[in-house]
Design a protein around this nucleic acid. Structure first.
Length: 113
DNA sequence: CCAATGACGACTT
DNA sequence: GAAGTCGCCATTG
């Protein structure tokens, strides 16, 4: 899996990492950005903003900010869709934030095994 | 071309 | 320890 790091297509790498997130787990923008060496967590979030039209669909609901808050829930088709999806996967949401975020936190290196 | 914004993060006060 | 400020890089106005 050679990482091209083509800044014009880096969001493809972001999608790949987000798709690798196991069900019931969550990760952060900064982690993805750091893993892909994007240099800014904003780039990861920006890429996910367009993930809605990406195929296959990207489980962006599994990506939250450093605080574990569902910062992008308003960007979904429905503001509550993100929380519903997370709860459906066993992730408890409290005050728009992931419960036991440290426990649900997932790192791309885990996928490397 | 310049300025402002953004699904963020880390540092400083 | 909490709140505020600056920095990152790309897109849009």
């Amino acid at each position: 899996m050679s990482k091209k790091l083509n800044k014009t297509h880096y969001f493809d790498d972001v999608y790949d990492v987000v798709r690798a997130v196991p069900r019931g787990r969550v990760t952060t923008y900064g982690t993805i950005a750091n893993f892909l060496c994007l240099g800014s967590a904003r780039m990861a979030g920006w890429a996910l903003n367009k993930c809605q039209g990406a195929l296959p669909p990207v489980p962006a609901h599994r990506v939250v900010n450093r605080k574990g808050e569902l910062s992008g829930r308003l960007m979904f088709e429905h503001p509550t869709k993100m929380q519903e999806l997370l709860e459906a996967e066993g992730v408890q949401i409290e005050n728009n934030a992931v419960v036991d975020f440290d426990q649900k936190y997932w790192h791309p290196e885990e996928s490397l095994s």
